[in-house]
């Protein structure tokens, strides 16, 4: 059984939702980034999304844009992000999803990317700008399909299209909480509940909701309706504000624990 499925199954038996944490690989720098990611996993993150920085992140708001620029300036690249997965895997049992734009993956080589990511211990891949219409080229290079290709679904996605996407998906489905880029303000919890229900009507896969969730209260509300809550820009804001300070990891731990508590207390 895949590590992703096992994670959601185990949480599901306890009636809990997953805390999915996103951070950009290499932010604030290569060394401290590993510390941040370990701290996230040790203090409550159930699924780790490791962001591969890209020079032109058109689906991301200013917070992740700046995180990407910091990481790129420190020499982060896809090969090193895969190396970080390998290092994390020695101590981290949570599933790891590589989160990238398509161009770095294409430049790395589709077949080589699959083999190296799998060998390093990654469990899934999410390519933000690769809709189902264009993913045949990549999947043709994935021998055995041992990595889950995580699919995005948006509030603008018609229900029939949701069904088509869900039918080809594995691992979990990532529901974008709003029509906007990452880190946007204006999360509408009633709309999230309605959209989650609409997606659940066409799939048995776990649904994780992300974009614009930052407070424990928001995480708790989303955890009541979805199997997973994704928090990304909020971690990056902490890294941006405290990246140069000695207590960065402790702040990350404290924040992660507050989210985890909220998600656990949601009672789905």
């Amino acid at each position: 059984m895949s590590r992703i499925k096992e994670t959601f199954d185990n949480l599901g038996k306890r009636g809990e939702s997953a805390l999915v944490g996103f951070a950009t690989a290499g932010d604030p720098d290569l060394e401290r980034s590993l510390g941040v990611l370990r701290a996230m996993c040790e203090s409550g993150v159930d699924v780790l999304e490791l962001g591969v920085p890209f020079s032109d992140p058109t689906a991301d708001g200013p917070v992740i844009q700046r995180a990407s620029q910091r990481a790129l300036a420190r020499g982060m690249r896809l090969s090193r992000a895969i190396g970080m997965v390998r290092e994390l895997r020695s101590s981290v049992s949570a599933p790891i999803v590589l989160f990238s734009y398509y161009n770095p993956v294409l430049a790395y080589g589709l077949s080589r990317f699959y083999k190296d990511a799998l060998a390093a211990g990654a469990d899934g891949v999410l390519v933000v700008d690769l809709p189902p219409e264009e993913s045949g080229e990549m999947l043709a290079e994935w021998e055995g399909r041992e990595l889950d290709l995580i699919r995005l679904v948006a509030p603008t996605t018609p229900t029939e299209r949701m069904r088509t996407i869900a039918d080809q998906a594995s691992g979990f489905l990532y529901l974008v909480s709003m029509t906007g880029v990452t880190g946007s303000a204006g999360l509408d919890l009633a709309e999230v509940a309605a959209e989650t229900a609409r997606l659940k009507s066409v799939t048995e896969l776990p649904v994780c909701v992300g974009f614009g969730i930052s407070t424990p209260e928001e995480a708790r509300a989303v955890a009541r309706v979805a199997e997973g809550v994704v928090v990304g820009s909020a971690f990056e804001r902490l890294i941006e504000a405290h990246g140069g300070e000695r207590d960065l990891e402790e702040r990350i731990r404290e924040y992660t624990r507050s989210l985890k508590e909220a998600v656990q207390g949601a009672g789905r």
Binding site: T58, A59, Y102, V128, D129, L130, P131, E133, E134, R151, L152, V153, A154, P155, T156, T157, P158, R161, I165, V176, T179, G180
Partner: peptide, 12 residues
């Protein structure tokens, strides 16, 4: 060519 965009834009 093709359509390499995030899902939010695909329906549009």
């Amino acid at each position: 060519g093709g359509r390499y965009v995030a899902e939010t834009l695909m329906p549009a």
